[in-house]
Design a protein around this nucleic acid. Structure first.
Length: 633
DNA sequence: AACGTCACCAACCGCACAAGT
DNA sequence: TACTTGTGCGGTTGGTGACGT
């Protein structure tokens, strides 16, 4: 009895049933491979995996995952289209690029990313793979959303329910919008945040296709950016708009439960903004008509400063530094460079003017006392450490004493007795939102160009074409005998393709293996195809090139072909020829990376090599021949 | 070239809440 | 009523690429 050794990073299958199913999927793929849409058959095979007993499911999923990855590497187009169709995800196909986890995803590799034991199985953590996405999508299609904890039980996904829900909600569910926020969306987010505070989920409800996570990330980034730039978080018109709405609702006796909740929330968090804030704001409204002489940033800052910062007397701290890098702001904010980046001339007078009077941009004059603590207590009673401080311009270079939490305020503080100020409230002035300039610009041009790597040129088309050529030509006889138009992968994956494949692997830059965990699997799988009594290894196609190149290239091409490497005869020979062996090992290292290479060396160093890889002795040797699979399509 | 910083993104974690038992 | 379970939400962390020094 020969002892079979399962490579460390191979399929690790032990079930002939699983092998059959995956092999079936493989065949379906090539058989149908005349257009990308047919690739869904591979997906169907995947789905069929979900119907097998749970004992086999993992192996199957893993195997199909490897198949996906093989072709994902061979042709990135294939992946983009197929997975888009399969899972309706947009994150991986919108720009035609694959995320890294898709390129070198570890597949379903239990424990590879850590994880926890739940119910005797290891729950995977970390980035989701496309295969996992496919499983989850299929599960939701069948069972609908909800009951996320059952996903792991019923689908074979080694993910906790929370993780599944999150993945679905943020990436997989239909009608998700991905990509940069539009100006309108940004504007809406700002407005919503002004009203709601950090209620991301509620904000997301107002932004179809956007997730709370996206909005949250956007906002957090925005906070950092603007604080570093010393800019207010809310543009003045938003402040005023919220204020207006607030007052309207107050006047009409409306009571927005949501906002009241937020109000309560703020109060329970000591985020109280005294009424005077809005009194001041109202006061400013009356004078906003004077604003055009000033940059928007000034007005914006003033208003938001007035909303809660005790630093309004020193508007921009002298130590305010120019942001190290304002990728977007600097380019889009060029109109304000004079006031913001270059020392804020408008406010320099606040810092330098020794006169005891501050001329407000609103046209109001306030007596100024150098010691505001005496005669001018912090305006509006802003509480140190409260979000009120952070609402406005707090220079990053001037830390706020006390605990500072980036909990941002809602501007929905409606209890203000505005009438006490005796200032009428004109409609909010039409101010160009500073944010409209500061925030992300509309993408220039098409912005997200497809990732046009040299490999992204329809290689699969070529591959498929070749498959047809080969299947209609030399394989005709075998097809007849098989009563099926089976095209064997090692037939169609010609040297040029795989050479490109190799280049692609390098390009992907996986330091371990160009296919990640898949490399060995490809290796094994293709070997199985070769050794599985289906087709004999064929001479490697050689490209006619100048002599010098030709030799090198042919050598390279030879070993670019996993099937060539794994041809049973070839392996026997290679083990007998040191030179060839050396070339081979080098090639393996080049092709599959060090990790697999070490595995290979280990195997090669043992006498079991031929046992493992030898003809008819692999772990797949119990796999029936293709023509014996009656259920083949 | 190496390193640091930043922006962006995805995912995890802990908590709170609601529904069911 | 107390407990469990499922779910949602917000905060936080970690990875990665771009860019600057």
């Amino acid at each position: 009895m020969k002892k079979s050794r399962i490579p460390k990073r191979g399929f690790g299958w032990r079930s002939s049933g699983a092998q059959i199913l995956v092999f079936k999927a493989w065949i379906i793929f090539f058989k149908q491979g005349s257009s990308f849409s047919k690739l869904n058959h591979l997906h169907q095979a995947w789905i069929s995996c979900l119907r097998v007993p749970s004992k086999l499911r993992f192996s199957l999923c893993k195997g199909i995952t490897h198949l996906f990855e093989v072709f994902r590497v061979i042709n990135r187009n294939w992946c983009g289209i197929t997975f888009k169709e399969m899972s309706h995800t947009t994150n991986e196909s919108e720009d035609g690029m694959l995320s890294k986890d898709q390129i070198d995803s570890p597949s379903i590799d239990e424990g590879s990313c850590g994880g926890s034991f739940v119910g005797g199985s290891v729950l995977k953590k970390g980035p989701w793979t496309s295969a996992e996405d496919a499983i989850l999508v299929e599960y939701v299609k069948k069972h609908g959303e909800g009951n996320w904890n059952a996903v792991q039980k019923h689908s074979g996904l080694f993910r906790c329910g929370k993780s599944c829900r999150l993945r679905w909600a943020n990436h997989l569910r239909p009608n998700l919008r991905k990509g940069t926020f539009t100006v309108d969306e940004e504007r809406l987010i700002i407005e919503l945040h002004a009203k709601m505070g950090n209620k991301w989920a509620r904000m997301a409800a107002h932004l179809p296709g956007r997730t709370d996570n996206e909005i949250k990330n956007y906002w957090n980034t925005r906070i950092k950016r603007r604080q570093r730039a010393g800019l207010p978080l809310y543009p003045p018109d938003v402040c005023l708009q919220v204020l207006n709405e607030n007052q309207q609702s107050q006047n009409s006796g409306e009571f927005n439960s949501g906002d009241s909740r937020h109000h309560d929330f703020l109060h329970t968090n000591n985020y109280e903004i005294p009424d005077v804030i809005f009194n001041n704001l109202k006061a400013s409204q009356g004078a906003l008509s004077f604003a055009p002489a000033l940059p928007d940033i000034s007005l914006s800052s003033m208003i938001t400063q007035g909303l809660g910062s005790a630093q309004m007397y020193s508007f921009m701290p002298p130590t305010m530094h120019r942001p190290k890098r304002l990728r977007e702001s600097e380019t889009l904010f060029s109109g304000f460079n004079g006031s913001v980046s270059n020392g804020l001339p408008v406010f320099d007078q606040f810092q330098n003017d020794t006169c005891e009077k501050i001329v407000w941009p609103f046209g109001l004059s306030f007596p100024y006392d150098p010691d505001p603590n005496i005669r001018n207590p912090p305006p509006f009673g802003a509480i140190l450490g409260s979000h009120a401080f952070l609402n406005g311009n707090i220079s990053a270079s001037k830390p706020i004493p006390g605990a500072v939490k980036l909990e941002l305020p809602s501007l929905q503080y409606s209890e203000t007795d505005l009438g006490s100020w005796g200032i009428s409230s004109p409609p909010p002035p039409s101010l160009e939102s500073v944010d409209a300039f500061i925030q992300s610009p509309p993408p220039a041009g098409s912005m997200q160009s497809d990732c046009l790597s040299p490999e992204n040129n329809g290689l699969l088309e070529t591959l498929i074409h070749e498959s047809h050529t080969l299947s209609s030509g030399k394989n005709n006889s075998s097809e007849k005998s098989l009563n099926s138009s089976i095209v064997i992968p090692c037939d169609i994956v010609d040297s040029s393709t795989l050479n490109l494949c190799g280049r692609g692997w390098k390009e992907y830059g996986d330091p371990i293996s160009p296919l990640g965990c898949s490399a060995a699997s490809v290796f094994i799988f293709l070997y199985v195809i070769s050794a599985g009594c289906i087709v004999k290894p064929e001479p490697v196609h050689q490209v006619s090139t100048p002599d010098g190149e030709e030799k090198e290239k042919s050598t390279r091409l030879d070993f670019s072909r996993p099937d060539a490497l794994l041809g049973s005869d070839w392996f026997e020979q290679s083990t007998q020829c040191d030179k060839d062996h050396s070339v081979m090992t080098d090639s393996i290292e080049t092709l599959f990376g060090e990790d697999f290479y070490s595995d290979y060396k280990h195997m090669a160093g043992t006498s079991t090599l031929s046992q493992v890889w030898g003809n008819g002795s692999c772990v797949w040797n119990n796999m029936p021949a293709v023509y014996q699979m009656s259920e083949l399509p």
